[in-house]
């Protein structure tokens, strides 16, 4: 069982949000390692053209992995921005507005990325 007092988070940051930031961060490091192995060792030339990318997305695991990566990166990034803003000690009212903005922008970025993935998968199946 996880106890809140086991961890050291920034003074004003909710401990569960802080823990989410740490877990998403470590997951991104693992995802990036896989990305570099795939793109630089297995496919040393990388994904060079639009046709290469569509062919890459025709493997079912790829869009699932990319969707997961998108959610992890956006979540980690926006939680990190929130931590930096908290360092500037804003008023509670201002922070509520910032929280709303970050949730809206983060959700929009994830939805946009998922839409793009669906478009690419649709085109790759028509190859």
């Amino acid at each position: 069982m996880i106890r809140k007092d086991q961890f050291q988070s920034s003074s004003k940051e909710n401990v569960w949000l802080w823990l989410t930031k740490i877990i998403t961060g470590l997951s991104i490091v693992i995802f990036l390692a896989i990305h570099f192995i795939v793109n630089h060792l297995i496919a040393p030339e990388g994904l060079l053209s639009y046709a290469d990318i569509l062919a890459y997305y025709s493997y079912p695991i790829v869009p699932v992995m990319e969707a997961g990566f998108l959610v992890l990166v956006v979540s980690h990034s926006f939680l990190g921005i929130r931590s930096i803003i908290l360092d500037l000690n804003p008023a509670a009212k201002v922070m509520r507005v910032i929280n709303g903005l970050l949730i809206a922008l983060g959700s929009a970025a994830i939805l946009y990325g998922l839409w793009l993935l669906i478009v690419l998968v649709g085109r790759s199946t028509n190859l």
Partner: peptide, 8 residues
């Protein structure tokens, strides 16, 4: 972190 967020 700020630089990588701008890049994202």
């Amino acid at each position: 972190a700020l630089g990588l967020t701008v890049y994202l």
